[in-house]
Amino acid sequence: MSQINIVAGGPIDLIPELSQYAADQMLWVGVDKGTVTLLDAGIIPDEAFGDFDSITDRERRKIEKAAPGLHVYQAEKDQTDLELALVWALEQKPDMIQVFGITGGRADHFLGNIQLLHKGIESNTAIQLIDKQNIIQMFTPGTHTIEKDFGKRYISFIPFSEEVEELTLTGFKYPLKNCHITFGSTLCISNELIYSRGTFSFAEGIVIMVRSTD
């Protein structure tokens, strides 16, 4: 399995056109109301997770009729619906997981979703959180190549660990070399590539990269 796309129940106006993210050897997964979003987009989810407490009876019947793999949970549980779906997705060992419908609405859910990126670090699986304006991903030490994207020209690096050691940015408008940054630093907000590709590297810590439109 090369790719799994997960659609959660965030505001529809922040979810990009999903069909452009379709690929060979991939699965679509709906999370709670995100399953309705998939069906409305003409995409039949391979799996669906949630307590489905945020949908109407009509929408629930629609899901039960269409979704072949339906996982229903009690509303009172120790994990969010998205975490349950993400854990299942990681168990399938894909090369990439892309998650939509995770921004807008409740800030606590969004902050929790950001932290779920760490599960990809633990499993050595690339996870991207995607909306119309942003792509968010988490990285461990090493050298990483990044391609220029004119649709998302702004690139920010935010420390997720207490310290990030020897951060180096090459091919950027504001380059860095062996820089030490700490949790809470805004030094690396809103940078840009000046060439078709660039690299970023660091020796210790965890970094969140955000690619954004204006």
Rank of each mutant, 00 (worst) to 15 (best):
S2I: 09
S2E: 15
I4M: 04
I4Q: 06
G10A: 06
G10W: 05
I12A: 15
L14K: 15
P16A: 04
E17C: 07
L18A: 11
Y21P: 05
Y21C: 08
A23S: 15
D24N: 13
D24P: 12
Q25T: 09
L27W: 03
L27V: 01
W28H: 13
V31Y: 07
V31R: 05
K33S: 13
T35V: 09
T35Y: 07
V36H: 09
T37F: 04
L38A: 14
L39A: 07
A41I: 04
I44D: 04
P45Q: 11
D46T: 11
D46I: 04
E47M: 15
F49M: 08
G50R: 09
G50D: 13
D51E: 07
D51H: 10
F52I: 10
D53T: 09
D53Q: 12
S54T: 15
S54W: 06
T56E: 06
D57V: 09
R58H: 11
E59N: 13
R60H: 14
R61N: 14
K62E: 13
K62F: 10
I63L: 02
K65V: 11
A66W: 05
A67D: 02
G69H: 11
G69R: 10
L70Q: 04
V72A: 02
Y73P: 03
E76R: 12
Q79A: 14
Q79P: 00
Q79D: 15
D81R: 08
L84T: 11
W88Q: 01
L90W: 04
E91K: 13
Q92M: 14
D95L: 11
D95R: 14
D95T: 12
M96V: 13
M96A: 10
Q98G: 08
V99K: 08
G104L: 07
R106Y: 09
F110S: 08
L111N: 12
L111I: 15
L111T: 13
G112D: 06
I114M: 13
L117C: 06
L117Q: 06
G120E: 11
I121P: 03
A126V: 11
I127K: 10
L129K: 01
L129H: 01
D131P: 00
Q133S: 08
I135K: 12
M138W: 03
F139N: 01
T140I: 05
G142K: 05
T143F: 00
T145E: 08
T145R: 08
I146K: 02
K148N: 10
D149T: 04
D149Q: 09
R153Y: 04
R153F: 03
Y154L: 02
S156R: 02
F157A: 03
F157Q: 01
P159T: 04
E162H: 08
E163K: 15
L167F: 02
L169Y: 03
T170K: 14
G171E: 00
K173M: 06
Y174H: 06
Y174P: 00
N178E: 15
H180W: 10
I181G: 11
G184Y: 00
G184L: 00
L187P: 00
C188E: 01
I189C: 02
S190Y: 05
S190N: 12
L193Y: 00
I194P: 02
I194S: 05
Y195Q: 14
S196N: 12
T199I: 03
S201M: 12
A203Y: 09
A203I: 03
G205V: 04
G205N: 06
V207M: 14
I208Q: 01
M209G: 00
D214Y: 00
D214N: 02
